[in-house]
Amino acid sequence: MAKQQREAGRVRDSVSPSDRAIRTRVRTYLLRHAQVFFGSLGRLSKTPFSTFMTTMVIGIALALPAGLHVLLQNVQQLSGGLDSATQISLFLKTDTSEPRTQEIVKRLRKMSEVRQVDYVSRQQALEEFTRLSGFGDALKALDQNPLPSVIVVTPALRHATPDAAERLLARFKLFKEVDLAQLDMQWIQRLYAIMDIVQRGVQILGVILGLGVVLVLGNTIRLAIQNRRDEIIIIKLIGGTDAFIRRPFLYSGFWYGFFGSLIAFLLISLAVNALSEPVAGLALLYRSQFSLSGLNATEVVLLGGTGILLGLLGSWLAVGRHLRDIEPT
């Protein structure tokens, strides 16, 4: 019994020191990382001017695509209100009687998908055409009115998106009195198409500027590596691994990316702030409640993450490329 206890005790004793050793190792490892992490920050602060220049370049390169993205988001938000301008024109067959036409108008007005129905009779259409086109005399030469009557349907907001409006159009086409049904949203579709192109352009710009950030950082880190050439050689001589030597440079890249995206965020916020008042003034003239919105939380995180990732990538490439060249002799 006593022997068993002694043995159990010995087992506990033999486990706990190694346990403690592992814990010390892990703690030391984390501590060293933290030291290098903040040490690289301290090193950057020793050359404030060049650090500021580099982060500023990165900040501007990130702010450009991100700022354009914000602008596009605002335009999209604004154009969302334009769906209400969607209209469907139903041109009726010329032999449709007046009472029948009124029935159709009534039926349309009862539909939940429809917000507004305007009826333009053949006579009204003729008057309007005469007034607006200047071909009135030519029409007088004809012995009868060639124009059809038109019912203009404005879909309810929920049904004003391009897809829903198309579905509505297909249903109207089935009416046997309808000669031709036409969706008047071409200009909205064109606007959307243009915005798609602009969005694609912003994405391309973002990729190019992202590449620029990587190259700028790669070069900055390359210079840092050259400045610390002697130190790298000494560390290699006394048995420092590549990972150990790489670490401070990677953390520098992290900091450059972090502060670069911080500057980008500040630049965008300043721009949105400066523009919001005139935009609100303009919106008021159009009796709109529209106000400029900046980056939301997700976008801020995305901006920061992108900056840091590009920073790490740039320094990783530089370190991988140049560390091998520096060997002690």
Binding site: T24, R25, R27, T28, Y29, L31, R32, D230, E231, I233, I234, I235, L237, I238, G239, G240, T241, F244
Partner: peptide, 30 residues
Amino acid sequence: GIIFQDHRLLFDRTVFDNVALPLIISGFSS
């Protein structure tokens, strides 16, 4: 352990930090 004629010390670090470098590299606790 290698000793050089030109010492090869890091001039931006204290004597303590210079001597500590091999231990830091090997991951010794503080």
